Amino acid sequence: MVEKIDVEFEEGDNNFLTHSMVDKMLIQNRKFVKNQPKRVVDLHSLETRVSMNPYVEKASVFLTIDGILKTLIKQRKPLARLVNGDTFFYIDRFGVKIPMSSNFSSRVPLVSGVEDATEIKELIKLLQTIASDDFFKKEIIAVERESNGEYVFNVRSGDYRVVFGGSEFASLKLKKLKAFYNKALIDETITRYKLINVKYHNQVVCTKHSHNGKQ
């Protein structure tokens, strides 16, 4: 007999699913699999059912010798929150769409202007480069892809925007931007600017809030 249901989540900082939500996925014929004979439990069907949930990246369902039905789940991890018209959804590192959840809100960049699969693939590569740096992972809160294919960032530390340009040479541009930050944040000159442009080779071009032009 199945004596107990045990649900385990792989480590991660997302909490879309709860243990009780997974328990409900394991219902067969309106009855829990608990107390059913082990030989009649369709493990493949249960695993398929859990895997079909949009928040599940990977699931494994199996029975232990002592009658415990174990379910191991790896939840999908959002990389960004996309807005398309009035529609919001997350995407993960594979470009899979993840619905918004009332249980959990992930602190990932808000992205606009990205629509087709090619643009999403390019976006994922850029976001993974950003996420690999602890500072920029927190600093860049929104990404806008303009019609010319260039990106503009909204940041956490001020009301200025970063004109990033295309996705090419992303690591080099971020390195250049960080060097600028290291100086401008310390001497507080960064508050003078409304745009910080790093799309040009080997230079940072800033536009001031005043009418004094570019520095």
Rank of each mutant, 00 (worst) to 15 (best):
V2N: 08
V2T: 11
V2P: 09
E3T: 10
I5N: 06
D6V: 11
E8S: 08
E8M: 08
E10R: 05
E10I: 00
E11R: 12
N14F: 13
L17I: 08
S20I: 04
K24H: 11
Q28I: 13
Q28K: 14
Q28R: 13
N29G: 13
F32K: 14
V33E: 15
V33M: 14
K34S: 13
N35S: 07
Q36H: 15
Q36I: 12
P37K: 12
R39E: 14
H44F: 04
S45I: 08
V50L: 03
P54H: 02
P54I: 00
K58M: 09
A59H: 08
V61A: 06
T71D: 04
L72Y: 06
L72S: 08
K74S: 12
Q75C: 11
R76V: 08
R81S: 12
L82D: 05
V83W: 03
F89L: 00
Y90D: 10
Y90M: 09
F94M: 08
K97M: 07
I98E: 02
P99W: 07
M100D: 05
S101G: 09
S102L: 05
S102G: 03
F104I: 01
F104M: 01
F104T: 02
S105M: 07
S105P: 01
S106A: 15
L110A: 06
L110H: 11
V111F: 01
S112F: 07
G113F: 00
G113C: 07
G113V: 05
V114E: 07
E115G: 12
A117C: 05
A117W: 03
A117I: 11
A117P: 07
A117Q: 10
I120P: 08
I120D: 04
K121E: 13
K121M: 05
K121S: 13
E122K: 13
E122M: 05
K125V: 02
I130Y: 01
I130P: 06
A131F: 10
D134L: 10
D134H: 09
F135S: 05
F136T: 04
K137I: 00
I140E: 06
A142I: 03
V143G: 04
E146P: 00
E150S: 12
Y151I: 06
Y151A: 04
V152D: 01
V152L: 06
R156P: 01
D159V: 04
D159C: 01
D159Y: 09
Y160T: 03
R161F: 02
R161I: 00
V162E: 05
G165C: 00
G166S: 13
G166W: 08
S167D: 10
E168D: 15
E168R: 15
A170K: 09
K173T: 03
K173M: 10
L174D: 05
K176T: 12
L177C: 09
F180Q: 04
Y181N: 03
N182F: 04
N182D: 15
D187W: 08
E188W: 11
T189D: 12
I190M: 04
I190C: 01
I190Q: 08
R192T: 10
K194P: 07
N197P: 12
V198Y: 00
K199H: 11
N202K: 11
N202G: 09
V204I: 02
V204W: 04
V205C: 01
T207P: 09
H209K: 15
H211K: 12
G213I: 01
G213D: 09
